[in-house]
């Protein structure tokens, strides 16, 4: 392969709402790295080679189909790789950069297929965030866009409670990241969202060193001060003009009952990635659940009573001067 761009391109991967857009914007501010809005290139390639396992374990898809017609799997994945590299090399050159980074929010769901196509020709930057903060933020995002991306809808179709669905989806993506890390540690760099938003410069310095790029003064401020979004992206992340840690720990606002449902799903993965597992007192027995239900009715009644009392209360007499 004859690429003018020598340093391996970068794939920023993680679960949606984990800080991938923030990191993309920060990298795009670097004079050597072109990291624009979402192109969907990697996930589109992954979908292209998707195969359904049918009778006797046969994988029915384009790779198997073309192989039977005389074109090897490597040939097909090589051509896909070339298509992506050509398009992105060209775009990087057009904007005067020597290297590119690709980030599309849903890439994390296609990570195994992306790796199958791009093997070790990409450097992977994995952005991870506390699973429950991700769930809270994803719920907000889906409500705002009034839909579920197909990759998430699959989970919502299986679990009637969206937060439960997102928790399962997060675990699956984190497991794909774990496989990636295990197989190619030297090609992988992990950015923890909670560190990124509390010490962006430190994280970025370390990441750039890993990528073999030099640090540039004013990178963080310059990245967020830039104007309109360049391509598709996350509307919420574009609203950021400063990096701050306000969105860390939002999961604590979830009700005790919800946390009890989510904890068993996310706890093993939280622990594996160095987060404290969700620790709750006692069990959610049927008696506890019923007591909580009774209290929720009483809480509603208390609020309604207070509102009714405020409405019937006569307005205060104007004060005489």
């Amino acid at each position: 392969m004859s690429h003018e761009i020598r340093k391996p391109p970068i794939a920023i991967v993680g679960f949606p709402r984990s800080g991938t857009t923030l990191l993309r914007r920060l990298l795009d501010a670097h004079p050597h790295i072109d990291s624009p809005g979402e192109s969907y290139l990697l996930s589109a390639c992954a979908r292209f080679i998707h195969a359904d396992r049918v009778v006797d374990g046969v994988e029915a898809g384009v790779l198997g189909g073309l192989e039977l017609l005389g074109t090897s799997r490597d040939e097909v994945t090589g051509r896909l790789r070339k298509l992506v590299f050509d398009l992105r090399d060209e775009r990087a050159r057009r904007v005067g950069k020597s290297r590119w980074a690709e980030k599309t929010a849903i890439d994390g769901f296609h990570l195994d297929a992306i790796r199958r196509i791009f093997a070790d020709e990409l450097t992977y930057v994995c952005v991870i965030r506390h699973g429950l903060d991700v769930c809270v933020s994803t719920l907000e995002w889906c409500q705002r866009i009034e839909s579920f991306p197909a990759e998430l809808h699959r989970y919502v179709a299986q679990h009637s409670q969206p937060l439960v669905a997102f928790a399962h989806a997060w675990v699956d993506v984190m497991q794909a990241l774990e496989r990636l890390q295990q197989d190619g540690r030297e090609r992988t760099f992990v950015v923890r969202y909670e560190h990124l938003v509390t010490a962006p410069e430190d994280v970025l310095r370390e990441l750039l060193e890993h990528l073999g790029e030099t640090w540039v003064e004013g990178l963080v401020d310059g990245a967020l001060a830039s104007g309109l979004p360049d391509g598709f992206g996350d509307w919420k992340a574009y609203g950021r003009v400063t990096v701050d840690a306000r969105s860390v720990g939002r999961w604590r606002s979830l009700s005790d009952g919800t946390l009890r449902q989510l904890a068993p799903i996310v706890n093993p993965t939280l622990s594996r990635w160095g987060y404290d597992p969700i620790d709750l007192d006692g069990e959610l027995t049927q008696a506890v659940a019923l007591r909580r239900y009774e209290l929720s009715l009483l809480a509603q009644r208390a609020k309604l009573t207070a509102r009714n009392e405020a409405e019937v209360r006569p307005p205060a007499e104007p004060q005489a001067n």
């Binding site: 009700s255 006692g282 007591r291 209290l295 809480a299 208390a302 609020k303």
Partner: peptide
């Protein structure tokens, strides 16, 4: 807290269960 909407009534349930516990 609750009448102002600072925290919601689901949190009132959590508050009461915490008090009881």
């Amino acid at each position: 807290l609750f009448s102002s909407g600072l925290i919601d009534s689901f949190s009132m349930v959590d508050l009461i269960t915490a008090i009881e516990r």
